[in-house]
Simulated scan of single mutants.
Amino acid sequence: MGIMNKAARTAWWDGLPAGIREQIDGYVLQDSLLGAVRVITSVGFLSHDIGVGTAQLIANDRYLHYGDRIAARRRAHSTWSRWRTGRPGMPAVSW
């Protein structure tokens, strides 16, 4: 089949049962790209010939959808800012 375009990926996503979408989104929100890709390929390989490349694009679409709500991105940003500026609970660092 090859790589799906954005419209085809969206149509495929919209056609998934809610439980599978929730499982994939759960992995994305935990910043577990490999978990999301694994589910996408296991669900989509036989029915739509979705390989790893297309699965990564679908997972990326979900990452873009959630943006800053992804756990590790929030944690990394807030921890780094506190650490860098010496806010309460974090030592000040000078390079």
Rank of each mutant, 00 (worst) to 15 (best):
M1W: 00
G2P: 07
G2A: 02
I3V: 11
I3K: 05
I3M: 13
N5L: 07
N5R: 07
K6D: 11
A7T: 11
A7G: 11
A7S: 13
A8I: 00
A8V: 00
A8D: 02
A8K: 03
A8S: 14
A8Y: 01
T10R: 02
T10N: 10
W12F: 08
W13T: 03
L16V: 01
L16F: 01
P17V: 12
P17D: 15
P17M: 15
A18M: 12
I20K: 01
R21P: 04
R21V: 09
E22A: 12
E22W: 14
Q23F: 12
Q23G: 07
Q23I: 08
D25P: 05
G26W: 04
Y27S: 10
Q30S: 07
Q30I: 02
D31F: 04
S32D: 10
L33A: 14
L33I: 08
L34M: 15
G35A: 02
G35L: 06
G35M: 04
G35T: 00
G35S: 05
G35Q: 06
A36R: 04
V37Q: 10
V37D: 00
R38K: 05
R38I: 04
R38V: 11
V39F: 00
V39Q: 03
I40Q: 00
I40T: 00
I40D: 15
T41P: 02
V43E: 13
V43G: 01
V43H: 00
F45Q: 11
F45P: 13
S47A: 08
D49K: 12
D49V: 08
I50S: 00
G51W: 03
T54W: 04
A55V: 04
A55K: 05
Q56M: 06
Q56D: 06
Q56K: 13
L57F: 15
N60P: 10
N60L: 11
D61Q: 07
D61Y: 01
R62D: 14
R62N: 06
L64S: 07
Y66D: 04
G67R: 03
D68P: 00
I70Q: 06
I70Y: 05
I70P: 03
A71S: 07
A71Q: 12
A71L: 09
A71N: 02
A72S: 09
A72H: 09
R73E: 00
R73P: 04
R74E: 03
R74S: 10
R74Q: 07
R75F: 15
A76S: 10
A76T: 06
H77I: 14
H77F: 15
H77C: 12
S78D: 08
S78I: 15
T79N: 15
R82W: 14
W83T: 13
R84N: 11
T85R: 07
T85A: 11
T85F: 06
G86Y: 01
P88G: 01
M90A: 15
M90N: 14
A92Q: 09
V93P: 05
V93K: 14
S94Q: 15
S94P: 04
W95C: 03
W95D: 06
